[in-house]
Computed example of a mutant assay.
Amino acid sequence: MNFKICILFFIALASPASSIEDDEEVTLKLLTSYNVDYNSAIKDEYSRIIVEDRTDEISVKIGILATYFRVFKKLVAWGVEENGFEHLYPSPEYDFDINIGSECKKGLEICLDTIISNISEIQPWILQDNIDLDELAMKKIIDDQRLGMEISASQILCYLTNSRIKAFEHIPYCSYRIQPPGTKLFTWTGKTFSKHNLIDEFVGKSFECATESFCPDPCCSGIPSVVRSSSKYAPLCKMNSCQKASTCIVKHFENDDLSKLRLNQFNVNCGCEEPGTIYRPDIGRCVHHNPCTKQSLCRDFGQECVNTASGYKCVCQLGYFRNGSNSCAPLKFSAPVYHGFALSEEMDEL
């Protein structure tokens, strides 16, 4: 009897750990699945939305979420120092919201509707009209009640932005944000909009608004060096180790893995000002670069690439010369006339 009790006790202890491992495995499998044929499915869906002439409807949904997350990630507090996640996601990371993740796997429109529905349950103002977007009001209505859900949603939307889903290229309401003190406050239009306002709200470069709204900025762009080196910002800006901080770059096509985004495993690059140099992330500095390793350079007939101090130069290969049309042509040699062996008088006598 005691032996049975021991076995049952052992099973009871083992079950929670097994359940945790199963949850982690399910989450990892779900995150990884976003990188398998998901982008093409979303692009196909958006092509149908274009044919159905519903792009404005989708843009408004993304614009509402973008406005929310621009303000939310700046103001919401997490951790001991109560920092926002403008520059890095909270670490250690919050549990990934399986419901949001699973619904977003079904398609773009379902994803947007699910996120808006979840957020509007705790933040009903996002679907209300005539709300003043001032910092004090936002701090009152944004809390961390469901921070895990909101961060998961932000990460998925950042992933879609970095994957260059066309719907995120130009979105409305980009001018709605926390305004500096003393400036005119914006009045949020909620779900009410007109085509005229929608077009006027397309501001910034391609995907710029969506990137700012949904993705962290590990380069800490636009932050003065004195602020970046402060005790509050230093841990958040640690990924910008460039010799010149302003050259820090986060390329979208190198940061489109959802599982890596969640862990703040960003691919950060540093631009180099000197010609003929390239940034080496392994040593953290700019080094001389041989552009001739690119197979696309100097591909014209008879050419070859030569590395120079400031870049590269296309020169003609051995046996070719640059003609009047600035292309490489083969050298032509006239054949010598052959008369046989030369004979001498001495040889005639033999």
Rank of each mutant, 00 (worst) to 15 (best):
I49R: 03
D44F: 03
G190V: 01
T27F: 06
N255A: 08
S221I: 04
D23T: 11
V250D: 06
C272L: 11
V306W: 00
A234Q: 15
F168P: 12
I165N: 14
G276A: 12
P180Q: 10
Q155N: 07
Y46P: 08
A41L: 05
Q303M: 15
I110H: 11
D144S: 15
H288M: 08
V26P: 00
C270Y: 05
I165H: 11
S225E: 15
Y89C: 00
E201N: 11
N130H: 15
S231Q: 14
P330C: 09
L318P: 01
I249F: 05
E274V: 12
F72K: 09
Y320T: 00
A167T: 01
C209P: 05
V250N: 04
V203W: 03
S19T: 09
L160R: 08
N99Q: 13
F168N: 13
S344C: 06
I110N: 12
E346I: 09
I100T: 14
K73V: 06
Q265E: 15
L127W: 01
E21S: 06
C270G: 02
E86Y: 05
N255C: 00
E274I: 13
E109G: 04
I223S: 05
E109H: 03
Y279E: 02
S206I: 01
N197R: 13
T211Y: 02
P90E: 05
G63C: 03
P181Y: 07
H196R: 15
T27G: 02
L185A: 09
E25D: 06
E274N: 12
G276V: 11
I131G: 01
C328K: 11
T67L: 02
S19I: 12
N264W: 04
V51T: 15
L160G: 01
K29Q: 14
L31S: 02
M149E: 13
H196A: 12
C242W: 04
A329Q: 08
Q265Y: 08
G324V: 04
D282L: 08
E274T: 13
A153K: 07
K251R: 14
C111D: 06
G276K: 10
F9I: 05
P281E: 12
R164A: 14
C286R: 02
S241K: 08
K332H: 14
N162A: 01
F186Q: 10
S152R: 03
V51C: 00
L318G: 10
T293N: 08
E52W: 00
Q179A: 11
F69N: 01
P291L: 08
G101T: 00
I110Y: 09
E121C: 02
T293K: 12
L147Y: 02
L65T: 07
P224I: 03
E169V: 07
H339Y: 07
S163A: 11
E57Y: 14
Q295F: 06
S175K: 10
Y38C: 08
K205P: 01
P172M: 02
E273K: 10
I64S: 10
I115S: 00
S241T: 11
L147K: 09
Y279A: 03
W188Q: 00
I278S: 12
G340Q: 06
S206K: 07
Q145M: 10
L350V: 13
E169P: 04
A137Y: 13
P291R: 10
K140A: 08
K191I: 10
T247W: 02
Y320M: 08
D217K: 07
